[in-house]
Design a protein around this nucleic acid. Sequence first.
DNA 1: AAAAGTTCCGAAACCGGTTTCGGCAAGGGT
DNA 2: ACCCTTGCCGAAACCGGTTTCGGAACTTTT
Lengths: 355, 355
Amino acid sequence: MSAIGKRTTIDDLARSLGLTKSTVSRALNDYPDISEKTRLRVRNAATALSYRPLSHAQAIKTGRVRSIGLVLQVSEHDGHRPFLADFLAGITEASAAQDWTLTLATANSTSDAVRLLEKLSQERKADGFILPRTYSEDLRIDALRAAHIPFVLYGRTDNIADCAWYDIAGEAAMFEAVETLYNLGHRRIGFVPGGAGYHYAKLRLHGYRDGLAAVGLDFDDQLVSANAVDKPQGFNAVSQLLALKQPPTAIVCSVDHAAVGAYDAIRSLGLKVGHEVSLISYDGIPEGAVLSPELSTYSVDTNLAGARLAELLIRRVRGEPPQDLREIGKARFLDRGSHGPVLLSSADLAAQIAR
Amino acid sequence: MSAIGKRTTIDDLARSLGLTKSTVSRALNDYPDISEKTRLRVRNAATALSYRPLSHAQAIKTGRVRSIGLVLQVSEHDGHRPFLADFLAGITEASAAQDWTLTLATANSTSDAVRLLEKLSQERKADGFILPRTYSEDLRIDALRAAHIPFVLYGRTDNIADCAWYDIAGEAAMFEAVETLYNLGHRRIGFVPGGAGYHYAKLRLHGYRDGLAAVGLDFDDQLVSANAVDKPQGFNAVSQLLALKQPPTAIVCSVDHAAVGAYDAIRSLGLKVGHEVSLISYDGIPEGAVLSPELSTYSVDTNLAGARLAELLIRRVRGEPPQDLREIGKARFLDRGSHGPVLLSSADLAAQIAR
DNA sequence: AAAAGTTCCGAAACCGGTTTCGGCAAGGGT
DNA sequence: ACCCTTGCCGAAACCGGTTTCGGAACTTTT
């Protein structure tokens, strides 16, 4: 690898300035016992010689490599797969702004993820981790907590001790969706929950129930289908709901990919989305815009999420307590064509379906 | 960050064995001057105490952090966006097998990418880089070459000096597509080139031309449309081709996303894909399977590409010459419904379109 | 049995930064 | 005029590994 183009080290820099490397180091790190004059001299010389400290040489004393760890579980049902690039861009841009980088790994299972988290941390490839797709009971969190490794959740979880997080208020969106549909005259409102075990699914179901309570509708567990996170599951879930004696005239979906299946289910009964059956969903996947009618859904700013998570994690690594590092964002409603005023009563709808 | 759970250092390990750390280090790194007996003793003790060397502490002497760098340009037209997760998984899995990791960054422009490459390398956040989406003339390559930083291309380029690469033989696929269509009776075969400036686009156009030559058809530059890398561009490109006095009865697309637009263009003229107009494309995006008829296309194993690239780069960093690190894979043809025997002559097709 | 190799490990330098500690010189107070 | 700060920088330890060098103990050769 040819030794051409030797790096300039801190010693080179110090020598060229007639200072010692300790002074140079403190000047560059803004120690208070360095005069403003020499601080500037050092800074200028550093840029002139294009000096860049080796991050691993710094790390040996500071213990920090200025790197965010992220372990993706690729086998997951990935509603966020289309958002991956945005998510990563959000993290890396926010990180780069503070001179941090992203160390990425992929796992095939939760236990694999735990193993990688521990390994990356022990080798100090990362100073802390962003945990995407949190479960209500999450082994990754348990492991990091036990090992006192800094982390930030993308999502929330049951046991929030020592947890920092960024999350979108999916429950608020579901709540609002129920209200919206109620105001359009719907009185039988179904719900398609998201992935079992994921905490977001639990929260969104709560939001749905709270929404019902707020508008004065009774909760009917028949109106909650099986969990659905993709097109076929969504198809089955909605078929199941529409086969009820008193079918829902509106359905709230936890994830867009299930809603795509819902379109097929509704159409296969000779009904039209947004007319006989209204649909409101959550995620904001691009496919929603090419369906007809376009899917009414709550969209998530994944780039922003990545950026916020990176900033929170860096603060966490720097020692801020997790209680101060909890942030909730809002999903933005895309008011499109898949929902509308109630057209038929539930009974009439049942009759129509029976034909 | 509580000092609970102190790491075991190499000194701890040495002390517990009654050896010096130099012996331990050499034992773990398979130096020949360590007896087999002590080598085993050390290994066992290391796993027993779960000793994991700090990668940055090693790096200070070795100069390597065992990390692959990847700078994504997020603003690119990303045919490979849907494959991003697969690509990253391929890289990280192959890297992890050799105890390497992936350092990821994102850029908004080529100059931004160059800046990041240099920065990451100078701070030694990465030992070398994978360069995705290569251009025929690529500033990133120039920069890395000039700085003697190891890199591997995903794709090829004009000036291949000092270049190692992995690439899929897109030109062979285009060649074969022309042959296939010729054998089905097509004599007017159009071509939709990919992104201007990208080297893959140049290669695939060559493949198309060579294919024509091989079957004995003349090259007609009218049959080559404008560049197209997404749906609207594909729509325009194919509309342009079908508006010719002697329109093609078959079209080869450089990228699937353009082919999706081709479907619309063909249908809007009252024609059916795979009947009046045949279509063969390249990439293997998932959307191709939900079109009707399903898109005939050459699919790329992106996961494998990531894995091969990681392995090549690691060898490159270890000092193998780039000439020995060039590898070409093959795209797999998905023989589906968007192409078939010629139905109308070009003249008849023109007449039909005119109506 | 002495000389010459081998085998194997310890001692110490080294990598490139950061951080602690101490001291000199200038400034301020009495 | 003297002492005490304060400001500012140099000297040296330190971080946790890797690598070079030298030498003791043990074999082999002559």
